[in-house]
Design a protein around this nucleic acid. Structure first.
Lengths: 189, 189, 189, 189
DNA sequence: AATGAATGAGAATTCATTCAT
DNA sequence: AATGAATGAATTCTCATTCAT
């Protein structure tokens, strides 16, 4: 075999893409992404057949990353509120620690470049999280709405929370708690 | 000076821009916007010095429109929850009635083309709404957070609510109520 | 109205295209064609929606030009051989006088960029010529073959004739006659 | 030196090139040719220093193949017309049996990638054929033209004949005879 | 003021060729 | 010798903006 495709380069491209998409949106030039990754313009296309594949690949990567972050150390045996708080803290933590990743995911999510297939793939990756949300919804105020409504509201409040933390990092702890309280009262209480 | 600028044309451009930006995002070509407005490509630039001014102008227009819709018939003398529900219903109603306007505002909001100045301008236009939100926040769970946090959470929950109504229009009434309850419990209770 | 599309520019583009396609084939870069025409790269695309339209437009233009050249002064009342010789001489004359046009048409004809529609359009433009060829075929050796076979053989011999004239311009007259004799004996005799 | 160059691979590359050049012209990507040959992209360049060498090599190969086909079983002792008809039938037969080879040769011939050297080399390989054509020309209508003119006219008529056979294979026999008659009357009669 | 042709700097993608393995 | 990843110049086409009419 000749040189094998380098995982390192693939990662470099995705990292560069995160940065550039975060700043410029999905119209970020592939040339800029390649440059940021330290590879030639053409090389990008040996790793991703075209820009759409890159964008979808990045979306999957980032969502998977977020999911992993949220779920590490998930205290499966504990109470619902404790588990929820665990996930919440890690969700907020991920977004605060990786503002570019968050910005990039958001840009991708509102764009029309992400396929249904990618979205389905992501939905399936969030299995345990979905179970938890179902539990939240089932016993509280959202009991008459579909669980996805509860999930969506959680994301929405979390996103807002992260926006405020970004602007006032010193208040991270306070906003994290306030956001969780809002979510809990809105959905599960 | 020959002919004065025609308010009619300005409006036509903004309406076309709403539609085109909703569908194609901020990278929508100005030529398409002009065509949709029934004016020549160059004419657009006598009404808006450049694309960024058009985008910011559209953002202001849409946000102002939303604000007007929310505040018409505001029952100033009634109880806080009644006033809140009034605003909420009109907010959701506006978004459901004008999905393109909503889509366009959202595209604009996540883009990096909207200046801080525009955002400040919009914030000021929401005076009475902000007063109301301050009241909501002051007496409830959000009493220790800035009122803008309460506002932002309201918007986030409302946005989510509208997403679900868009997908299941038959359930509009139910989701409107469920969304309001979530907001009220999260923020004002 | 603003500036009208300039016939002059359209012509300049087609002339430049003739030259560049003659030298480089259908893979001739549009940028080079534009430069040769003295217009901006983008301007080419306001006159021809894309490269294929340019190529087909050029094909039509050149074939029409050839047809006009062949048919001017067509001695409608004279004998078949006289009329044939008239057309033949002008055909050879056109090809010898415009070697680039000839090269370009040839490149276009063998490429797969010329649509059936264009070919049909051209065939129709050759109405009177086709009538004449039908007459040639009907009375001679080709009487049992389709007239298009006779036409094709005429073109083939003419093309060969022009190749030799191009290499030995001094012998133009001799080759013109020799070619015609070959054609006449092959087809009409 | 490690392994010697494999004749098998060289052949595979040329065969693949025939097919791909026939379909896509001289702008056929070398990568596609390599793939069709079952070798790596880089391997192609150990057999042919660059694309032009491959193209010229292919041209020589195909022309040589055609020549061999035409001359097999050449009835050296028979009459001129019989020998001519022999060659003609095999020429037409080769083109009908190998449409891709024919298409490829043609694409190569009109391109500007074939060097004068290659063309000379081919001309020399056609020795016995040229002798025969000289004989044809010497005694007939072409007696005052160079023998190459007669050859060229033969090729031109043959090419036209093959085009018609390609479109109406059922009429192969008829067109073969009609074409030969045309050639014979044009050149040798 | 209105028009729309003209401009040329990008944009995504392809491809002959090189070179590390 | 064989492989196929890496390269970056070249290609077609788009688009915000200008400017002649």
């Amino acid at each position: 075999m000749a040189r094998p495709l380098s995982e390192e380069k693939r990662t470099a491209i995705l990292e560069s893409a995160t940065e550039v998409v975060a700043m410029l949106g999905v119209s970020a030039p592939t040339a800029k992404i390649a440059k940021g990754a330290g590879v030639a313009e053409g090389t990008l296309f040996t790793y991703f057949a075209n820009k759409d594949e890159l964008l979808n690949g990045l979306y999957l990567e980032l969502k998977t990353d977020l999911c992993a972050a949220m779920m590490t150390g998930y205290p499966a045996g504990k109470s619902l509120i404790e588990r929820s708080r665990h996930v919440w803290d890690r969700y907020i933590g991920w977004g605060s620690a990786h503002p570019l990743k968050r910005r990039a995911v958001r840009q991708l999510a509102v764009s029309d470049r992400i396929t249904e297939a990618s979205k389905t793939l992501v939905a399936n990756a969030f299995g345990e999280f979905n179970d938890m949300m179902r539990e939240c919804a089932a016993g509280g105020a959202m009991r008459h709405q579909p669980p996805s409504f509860a999930s969506a509201i959680m994301s929405a409040i979390a996103d807002t929370t992260m926006d405020f933390i970004l602007r006032e990092p010193a208040q991270a702890k306070r906003y994290t708690k306030a956001g969780f309280d809002a979510f809990w009262k809105a959905v599960a209480d």
